[in-house]
């Protein structure tokens, strides 16, 4: 589904990604583990074509199509979704309005207002977001945890083929991580894929992880099975630094 080959990326003339290789198949869940500042968020942003990053080498394919020529919204319409590490606040645009507009954009069909409203409220209930948040402005005044649950709400509404979750569990209390984890489990099936960036095994509780990757210094230095997650929580990244 996603195939990244020898990707090199610069921002502000600084090399951030130094040859990333990653292949995520249909139905798979991959985990990326890596210290702060290693370039994980950059990789997510580049997959969606953030204008601040310059690709200096390598390729990104999504379902066989070269993504690099596409604009961000075109990539989203192909079925890629990013749960942002730091979701933006957008004053004056309500959660419901934005999501309806987005849903219309990705499905290319007109969405009925009332029916959408019902579906949205049902999903909000599952994520334990209180209904008045539908008419609040996007992320404005939301707590860190509320913003993250709101990202998962968007994931469930837009139902993409590939979900990129960038530290969606960071800063959440145990119960909130559980809600997020169940939300992702609800989303996932054999036809879609996830890349989950995390520092914490708890979010993976309900998820069948296929592969885990250690990300250091702009590169994947080691890949393996789910067991890497517990290895990192026990021993940190130091052993992998030696390996790299």
């Amino acid at each position: 589904m996603l195939d990244i080959k020898n990707l090199h990326v610069k921002a502000d003339n600084k090399e951030i990604l130094r040859g990333v290789n990653l292949n995520v198949g249909k139905g798979e869940i991959h985990v990326i583990l890596g210290p702060n500042g290693s370039g994980k968020s950059t990789l997510m942003n580049v997959i969606l074509g953030h204008p601040k990053y310059e690709i200096t080498g390598g390729e990104i394919f999504f379902e066989g199509e070269d993504l690099t020529a596409l604009k961000t919204f075109e990539r989203a319409r192909r079925g890629i979704f990013l749960s942002f590490q730091n979701p933006e606040e957008i004053p004056g645009i309500t959660v419901e309005n934005m999501l309806r507009t987005a849903k219309q954009a990705v499905t290319g069909t007109k969405i009925k207002i009332l029916q959408f409203h019902k579906e949205l409220l049902a999903l909000m209930k599952e994520l334990q977001i209180s209904p008045e948040y539908a008419s609040r402005y996007m992320n404005v005044g939301f707590s860190g945890g509320e913003k993250k649950r709101n990202e998962i709400l968007q994931l469930l509404v837009l139902n993409p083929k590939l979900a990129l979750l960038d530290e969606t569990d960071s800063g959440l209390d145990v119960d909130a991580v559980e809600i997020v984890s169940q939300g992702v489990a609800k989303f996932h099936n054999e036809n879609n894929s996830c890349i989950i960036i995390t520092h914490n095994a708890q979010i993976l509780k309900h998820l069948p992880v296929n592969r885990a990757h250690i990300f250091l210094n702009g590169q994947i230095v080691k890949s393996g099975g789910a067991e890497l997650v517990s290895e990192v929580s026990e021993r940190g990244y130091a052993p992998f630094e030696v390996e790299s």
Binding site: E89, I90, A105, V106, L158
Partner: peptide
């Protein structure tokens, strides 16, 4: 904010208008 909206499939012009 424009990037955030575009990452949800909303076109650049519509994102700016919104």
């Amino acid at each position: 904010a424009v990037f955030y909206l575009m990452a949800r499939g909303i076109s650049e012009s519509e994102a700016r208008a919104m």
